[in-house]
């Protein structure tokens, strides 16, 4: 090979390497901007709110005195609403996804349903709030309760759960299903014993992403009538007397973390703004710990899958 051609090739390689470098730099810059903005926001919030974080802050009800105000009713409300949301969205979402992936015939109707589920994920949350106000609060008579809020947020995250579950199911090699069929398993048996367990890590991820979105939602919850001042807790789910389990809390009035924050930020006193920052920090920690839990469970589940 003559020198000229070799030089040309080297030039070409160098040029491409330069582009590689430029792209890496731009990518790093973008990552930096995103990470910096986020870090700055969190640090600012932490500096404002950290001094307010004490045991009292978690065990006190809201109050007109900023130093005594706490988030007890808010975090309990958020937790209970999330429980209802999970109980509503997971079974429905996972079943819908299993049906669509494993059972549904591939025809026009299924295609339309699939497109609509994807579109639903992009519908503004206030629309779910209005739907829920008419349906759950008035038509079904659930009132302005934890049940209404949980079901609303359940609806809201349903598309996310369905899409994530379908992705997870799709990533199971068909060899697994064929192996099960080959030894005479039914479709249901295959799904229950193999497809679902193997796709559980993916499903978990989808559910947690959905829940993390739901816990920060304000608009639909305000629409269905969450309260700004509430200084008592819903009835305890476990009672001292027969039948020991009570579901009265489902019908109780409530407030949630984002609403408590919103209420505090719109107050004139600067001390309440610190409370809001502290509540924001707690909300962030709640979301992060939900994510951490999901990662841990996923890791444990993956370890058991031996293929």
């Amino acid at each position: 090979m003559d020198q000229a051609a070799l030089g040309e090739i080297r030039d070409l390689i160098n040029r491409h390497k330069r582009w590689d470098l430029i792209f890496a730099a731009v990518g790093l810059l973008c990552l930096g901007i995103a990470a910096l903005t986020f870090t700055a926001l969190v640090i600012d919030m932490a500096l404002d709110g950290a001094p307010r974080l004490s045991a009292d802050f978690f065990t006190n009800f809201p109050s007109r005195r900023p130093a005594q105000a706490g988030i007890l009713s808010a975090w309990v409300g958020s937790t209970l609403v999330m429980l209802v949301t999970a109980a509503a969205a997971i079974p429905v979402g996972v079943s819908a996804a299993v049906y669509l992936e494993e059972y549904a015939p591939k025809n026009l109707l299924t295609a339309i349903i699939e497109i609509n589920i994807t579109n639903l994920a992009g519908v503004p949350s206030i629309v779910y709030g209005l739907l829920a106000l008419g349906l759950f609060v008035y038509a079904f008579g659930f009132g302005q309760s934890i049940l209404s809020a949980g079901l609303t947020l359940g609806l809201l995250i349903l598309p996310v759960v369905i899409v994530a579950t379908r992705e997870a199911i799709r990533s199971i090699p068909s060899a697994i299903r064929e192996a099960a069929y080959a030894v005479g398993a039914t479709k249901w048996g295959t799904t229950w014993d193999h497809v679902l367990p193997y796709s559980l890590p993916g499903i978990m991820t989808g559910v947690i992403i959905g829940m993390a979105r739901a816990i920060g939602e304000t608009a639909p919850i305000i629409t269905i009538g969450a309260l700004s001042f509430i200084a008592f807790l819903p009835p305890a789910p476990i009672q001292g007397e027969f039948p020991f389990l009570s579901f009265e809390w489902l019908m109780a009035p409530f407030t949630v973390m984002p609403i408590q924050m919103f209420n505090w930020t719109s107050r004139p006193e600067a001390a309440f703004h610190q409370n809001a920052a502290a509540a924001g920090l707690v909300l962030l920690l709640m979301t992060l710990s939900m994510n951490a839990l999901a990662i841990y469970i996923r890791y444990q589940l993956r370890k058991r899958i031996k293929w």
């Binding site: 001042f229 008592f232 009035p253 107050r267």
Partner: peptide
């Protein structure tokens, strides 16, 4: 009016020791 009613509700519930419950919303 919320700050006034909230203050009253807070003190009222304390005086009742939780027997009567008050909720205040903002719409």
């Amino acid at each position: 009016v919320f700050p006034i009613t909230e203050a009253i509700a807070e003190d009222f519930q304390q005086s009742q020791r939780g027997k009567i419950r008050v909720t205040v919303g903002i719409s």
